[in-house]
Design a protein around this nucleic acid. Structure first.
Lengths: 106, 106
DNA sequence: TTAGTTAGTTACTTTATGTAAGTAATTATA
DNA sequence: TATAATTACTTACATAAAGTAACTAACTAA
């Protein structure tokens, strides 16, 4: 069959972004560092999966985890340079959604 | 908690794009109409899921399905205007992947 | 008549995600 | 001193999504 080869780097990027919740996590972190519970409550994500996603994104050097030994302990997640570089993608998704998706799509 | 509200249209868009395979299907269709078996063999997707995704994208008016009653029958999938408008997103993902992802990431 | 082609569908297995309860470290309250 | 509260998780189990492989329908070609 018509074997159009897909660029492996593009494929990798899509593999990251097409994980459930990843886009929304990045969207939230683009507006500044966030704590675990803030992320958890702002989207419908479960703690189990949020924990998993943050670890994956940390391993990919997209997200940085910082511990502040206060009381109770504060842990902040923020974007690395690599993570901040995703902003144009998120912006384009926002633009498309505003132009092409109806209000109240349920 | 810090309840930053997420734009429902952005959330909807992310819900579409974060479905496994959807990004790669769109990427393939951006280079022109494709047949079912061409899409199937160019990515690692199974027929079961490809069929499901194409139906979803058709219902969202992102993909158009056309039947050519030849022999054997030819069915072509292509992007609608709404679908073509996703190009800037795909382009930004390509850019990011080229800048930030290593070659041969395995 | 048997095999081949395309575009699927169906039944079943494996993987991913959701749910809810539990843990560790610390401080606050009764 | 015991109990509760908070944050950032983890664990065990249930459900949903995706993968696998075989099957179907409509047609042609050998």
């Amino acid at each position: 069959m018509n074997q159009s080869i897909i660029c492996p780097r593009f494929e990798k990027a899509m593999g990251i972004l097409s994980q459930r919740w990843t886009g929304l996590i990045l969207y939230q972190l683009l507006s500044g560092p966030k704590r675990f519970c803030a992320l958890e409550s702002s989207m419908g994500i479960s703690g189990r999966v949020l924990s998993e996603r943050l670890k994956d994104l940390e391993n990919l050097d997209i997200v940085k985890r910082e511990v502040f030994p206060e009381t109770p302990v504060r842990i902040e997640y923020s974007l690395t340079e690599k993570g901040k570089a995703l902003q144009p993608i998120i912006k384009e998704i926002e633009k498309w959604s505003q132009t092409w998706l109806p209000i109240e799509p349920n």
